[in-house]
Design a protein around this nucleic acid. Structure first.
Lengths: 103, 103
DNA sequence: TTATGTAATCGTATATCGGCGATATACAAT
DNA sequence: ATTGTATATCGCCGATATACGATTACATAA
């Protein structure tokens, strides 16, 4: 990416595009849906539902966590992931604002 | 990516994640905003507004076009780009549905 | 203690992205 | 026909992304 020029753009768009990027993979959308359906979810269960290896799922979880969409609480040997409603709401607001401005 | 497993997911999520991916770069958000502000826009004007080389802008335009967000009409030696309201509306609908399901 | 199970991380392979200059293409104007 | 302008595409590169198996770290069970 030749030292990505992301910095040259408005921070508003930087945040929004970062969120969109995190949503830009079907596995990650599926993970979000799973977490919503079960309210919360053990990492292992997510791995069981996806056609992907454990390591790969773990990476997708990290992307979603870095974007702020989910958080993971350590529960003994397991990790319980859940949606972060606050970020989801802010993201939705920003997206709606964007589309309003576009139409 | 070891032969991306995108195909293994629901086509609904495939479409939505493809849209999100296209929105996942600040330059592309900026292009959409420009097109909205001017209603339509000559490619050269877009290049003039962005801190990127012409070739790079052309690639971003292609990504947005492939995603269906914009269309370009040849106008002599120039190309006039404009937003595709239909796709934007469908994308917004899908996004809202997603976030409804998540909360 | 040892064994087992869970999840993150490491290392690796490959694909895609993002950037640019150079080139090709298409049209306009002279 | 030539020159100039506008846009797309090519070729190349370094950086990221996606996928996996192997390893590690740690909690719990035996």
């Amino acid at each position: 990416m030749a030292s990505s020029k992301t910095h040259a753009f408005a921070s508003r768009d930087a945040q929004l595009s970062a969120w969109a990027k995190a949503l830009g993979h079907p596995a990650r959308l599926m993970i979000l849906r799973l977490l919503a359906a079960r309210n919360a979810c053990i990492c292992g269960d997510i791995v069981g539902e996806l056609p992907l290896a454990q390591a790969t799922v773990s990476q997708h979880l990290k992307v979603l966590k870095d974007a702020g969409f989910i958080s993971g609480e350590i529960d003994g040997a397991r990790v319980c992931y859940c949606l972060n409603g606050e970020t989801l709401r802010r993201c939705l607001t920003e997206l709606n604002t964007l589309f309003e401005e576009l139409t």
